[in-house]
């Protein structure tokens, strides 16, 4: 599955560790939530980057204490139609102040890119190669947004007060 970052398809540096596999001493790794919580203090003490895969039915606030030591949080879209991770993403970015990599995984298709970018995701494990290739184009499909979110763009209702010409630039993470 291609990984998109900054609008480009890139190699994934993270190695996924299954529930009972040994923890490597170094190298970026991504572990499931249960595993992470079981050994959290040990894992975040490693010298390399640690990421966690957080399921969409688990309270994201539980991650709060570890966020400044986590390099990556991967949220899950088990189905295109299941939108719980959008809320988790906004809470992570906007309330818990998480600044690390926020990755969308699962059923990630082009028709969600804009929503995901706006919710705070910045990397994407895209389901279809063809969708990954057009990421940059699709991400810039919209230039008007009606809601304020953590991506910092000013919504239409505020921009109107300043006039149409002041529309904000393209989405963060959309790439060129």
């Amino acid at each position: 599955m291609p990984l998109v970052k900054g609008g480009q398809i890139v190699a994934d540096r993270y190695v996924r560790i299954l529930d009972d596999a040994p923890i490597p001493a170094n190298g970026a790794m991504l572990v499931p939530a249960e595993r992470f919580l079981a050994d959290a203090s040990e894992l975040i003490a490693r010298q390399a980057e640690t990421g966690v895969i957080w399921p969409n039915n688990r309270d994201i606030d539980e991650l709060g204490p570890y966020l400044d030591r986590l390099a990556l949080v991967a949220l899950v879209f088990p189905k295109f139609q299941d939108g719980r991770a959008y809320s988790q993403a906004r809470i992570l970015r906007e309330r818990l102040g998480y600044r690390g990599e926020l990755r969308a995984t699962g059923q990630v298709l082009r028709d969600q890119f804009v929503f995901m970018l706006r919710a705070g995701f910045d990397t994407f494990e895209v389901k279809k190669e063809a969708d990954a290739k057009v990421f940059g184009e699709v991400a810039q499909r919209y230039s008007v947004f009606y809601q304020p979110t953590g991506d910092g763009r000013s919504p239409a209702f505020r921009q109107r007060l300043q006039g149409f010409a002041t529309r904000a630039p393209a989405l963060r993470g959309a790439g060129r």
């Binding site: 804009v114 706006r118 919710a119 009606y146 209702f157």
Partner: peptide
């Protein structure tokens, strides 16, 4: 109308 704008293509609430 405020709600219409607020809810149109809402990035968090389009897959309720």
């Amino acid at each position: 109308e405020l709600l219409r704008q607020y809810s149109t293509l809402h990035p968090e609430f389009s897959f309720l």
